[in-house]
Amino acid sequence: MAVRKKATEATEATEMAVEQLETVDTPAVEEVKEAPAPKAEKKAAVETAKGVVSETTHQLGIFSDYIYNARNEGVDIVVENLGYGDVYVHERGVAKVGDLTQRLTFGESRTFPATSKVYAASASQPVIQILELK
């Protein structure tokens, strides 16, 4: 009988502690909304402003560099990351993997106005689309 009495007392003590916790007023928590990250420019908007002269899709290899030479003179080159990893692009010199100013994540694009060459590098195997706009 002594064991049952101790178990009952322990249960009652636990129930009282739970009741006390339930009655404690907690301050209201305010929801903090973060501003959405700026989205990359949409390809459709770019295409309507200027005409597409040339379109190329290329999948980079692991830890590889890619140099794109414009096929036409006086064009703007748009590079868009279509997925499978990040790509790093630059218009002067070799792109550096890890440089956040050169990085394009999935769905992002970057326009290089009046450029004849674009350099791309990756540490994975991203697919990129390159548009020449006139």
Results as ranks from 00 to 15, higher is better:
V32A: 11
V32E: 13
E34G: 12
P36K: 04
K39I: 12
E41L: 05
E41M: 05
K42N: 10
K43C: 05
K43A: 04
K43T: 03
A45P: 04
E47H: 08
T48V: 03
T48G: 03
T48D: 08
T48C: 03
T48A: 08
A49K: 00
A49T: 01
A49C: 02
K50T: 14
K50F: 12
S54A: 14
S54I: 14
S54K: 15
E55H: 13
E55L: 12
H58D: 07
H58I: 13
Q59T: 15
Q59R: 13
I62C: 05
F63M: 09
F63N: 12
S64W: 07
S64A: 14
D65P: 12
Y66A: 11
I67R: 05
N69W: 09
N69V: 15
R71I: 11
N72I: 07
N72D: 05
N72P: 02
N72R: 04
G74M: 09
V75W: 00
V75G: 01
D76M: 04
I77Y: 01
I77P: 02
I77H: 03
V78K: 09
V79Q: 00
E80Y: 00
E80V: 02
N81W: 02
N81A: 05
N81Q: 03
L82W: 04
G83C: 02
D86F: 06
V87I: 10
V87F: 06
Y88K: 03
Y88L: 10
H90R: 09
G93T: 01
V94M: 05
A95N: 01
K96G: 05
V97R: 11
V97G: 14
V97E: 14
G98D: 07
D99H: 10
D99S: 14
Q102D: 03
F106W: 13
E108S: 14
E108D: 15
S109T: 13
S109N: 14
R110Q: 13
P113C: 05
T115A: 08
K117A: 07
V118R: 01
Y119S: 05
Y119Q: 01
A120S: 06
A121I: 08
A121N: 09
S122H: 02
A123Q: 06
A123V: 12
Q125Y: 08
P126N: 09
P126E: 09
V127P: 04
V127M: 11
I128R: 00
Q129P: 01
Q129F: 03
I130Q: 05
L131I: 09
